[in-house]
Design a protein around this nucleic acid. Structure first.
Lengths: 120, 120
DNA sequence: GTGAAGTGCAACCGATGGTTGCGCTTTGAG
DNA sequence: CTCAAAGCGCAACCATCGGTTGCACTTCAC
């Protein structure tokens, strides 16, 4: 109930650079630290660190190939992360809806009181 | 297209402690740094810093009352944040769906080739 | 074999989430 | 009125993290 979330997954997805990396890996169907860094405003080493975080979170898999290390998105795990994002959103959405309904009821009650004052 | 997001909003909502604070403020209908810190595993000062971040992001409003400073959630702004979360989720969801469809098509194509080999 | 490509490791820097300690105003009980 | 406690802000400090630079190591290609 209290938005208890797999914190590793959320924080992995929480960083803006890592989100862009996931975007690139998805649209390109994989990549290496070097190819990613060419399309991002950070150095290869920064990208490598992020890939480590994503790997530990299970969001990507790595395949060594000669002197390269190719990374690909783990779609099932990313789907889990998406589900958790939606869950948080849904929780807050529900509460905001409840608040909105209560506010409307209060306003309606006040309107009733002003329209038909039965007592002095 | 490229998941361009209001980074202040996202990062404000990105911290797990701040998410719990928003939960508490929503369910209690507001609170102070002290009352929040009593229900969280961090000190009042840490809570105060987070309230500053949430305030700068426009997610909460503060009302000084005597020696207290009461904070309440700005529902419209939180709704915006929720919308952005959903947007990121929807983007990835769409891409994952596309990948899934492509994978299925490839599998179907291969099945066709194996079933009816027209040429040698 | 040699140079370039790709990677990893280590040191360093700035921002941030967290703590402790202190001092200030406000409140309320005596 | 007095004074202790409640609530808050400010400042110093620490660990972690995202980012950088620099260097050494493998692998590929000529």
């Amino acid at each position: 109930m209290s938005t208890a979330i797999d914190d590793d997954l959320w924080s992995a997805v929480g960083d803006p650079t890592r989100r862009r990396m996931l975007d690139l890996l998805l649209s390109d169907g994989g990549g290496t630290a070097t190819t990613l860094s060419e399309r991002l405003p950070v150095t290869r080493q920064a990208v490598a660190k992020h890939l480590g975080v994503l790997d530990r979170a299970g969001l990507v898999h790595v395949t060594p190939a000669g002197r390269e290390r190719r990374y690909e998105v783990d779609e099932a795990q990313l789907a889990r992360a998406v589900a958790q994002l939606s869950a948080v959103g849904a929780t807050w959405d529900a509460r905001l809806q409840r608040i909105k309904r209560i506010a409307e009821r209060i306003q309606r009650d006040r309107a009733d009181r002003e329209a038909g004052p039965e007592k002095s």
